[in-house]
Design a binder for these strands. Structure first.
Lengths: 136, 136
DNA sequence: CTTGACCTTCCCATGATGGGAAACCTTATA
DNA sequence: TATAAGGTTTCCCATCATGGGAAGGTCAAG
């Protein structure tokens, strides 16, 4: 199958498939005489794996490791679990950071009248905050 | 004061100060005969404002709007509040997305032995997931 | 006057993705 | 068979916010 079909079947855009190939994440497929890339069902499988990994927030480098673990039938499941749990912690940390920002801002907004008057504690806070406090 | 001191006082790196100037986020300061940028206390104030805005997750474009609102003494506080609350919703959405990823992955990890054996439901899921499910 | 710590501009890199151009291939249809 | 439509190729550029670093100018202290 051509790259377009592989893209549709895997949920990875043709653009990204070529990119993944260029960075060595996936192996270059065979080519027709006209240089068209030719994919097999198994390649689509790999692309879906990558797609799933990305959807779960793994970077391409992490995805590279996961692919290696996937292909290495002799690796311990503990290796995978460790990588996964480390990622879970990162995700939860980032989620908490965003939530903290939202909470801070929501709190500031609480004290803002939100009417025609110009006074606004939100901007007042922005203007008054010192750089060390600013780590929010 | 020179850019270095403005950077220290504001918590914005000299590199970023120059960049903010180049994209018109802040107004170009006066220069010495030797082309050194010269900042006043008020400029540091503005930089802190930007820093605070960034720390709360606003993009530079959003920060630009906030700066405009800040300087416009006649704008209604409702304008600011609307912008802020829209951002709060965005932040909470992103936080929820990350949390969902973490939950999914944590769930998968629950079923992974995490020992020396190679079987791993995490990778099995990655390999089996179809593109439409993959939206995670 | 030298040294070191600043400052200047300019270019490059990141991470993951999309947009688009120019040229080429394939297939269907008139 | 000629042509049009649509898929493919490579290549370059853009995003967003930031940092790194080079090459050269400046300033203050010793």
């Amino acid at each position: 199958m051509n790259i377009g079909e592989a893209a549709t079947r895997s949920g990875v855009s043709a653009k990204m498939i070529r990119y993944y190939e260029s960075i060595g994440l996936i192996t270059p497929p065979a080519r027709t005489a006209a240089q068209y890339r030719v994919y097999a069902a198994d390649d689509v499988h790999t692309l879906r794996f990558v797609r799933r990994s990305r959807d779960l927030g793994f970077s391409l480098e992490e995805t590279r490791e996961l692919l290696a673990l996937w292909r290495d039938k002799s690796r311990a499941s503990a290796d995978v679990k460790n990588l996964a749990m480390a990622h879970v912690r990162e995700l939860e940390e980032k989620a908490a950071e965003l939530k903290a920002m939202a909470d801070t801002l929501r709190h500031l907004a609480t004290h803002c009248h939100g009417d025609h008057r110009p006074d606004c504690p939100i901007l007042a806070d922005f203007a008054a905050t010192t750089p060390t406090q600013g780590k929010a």
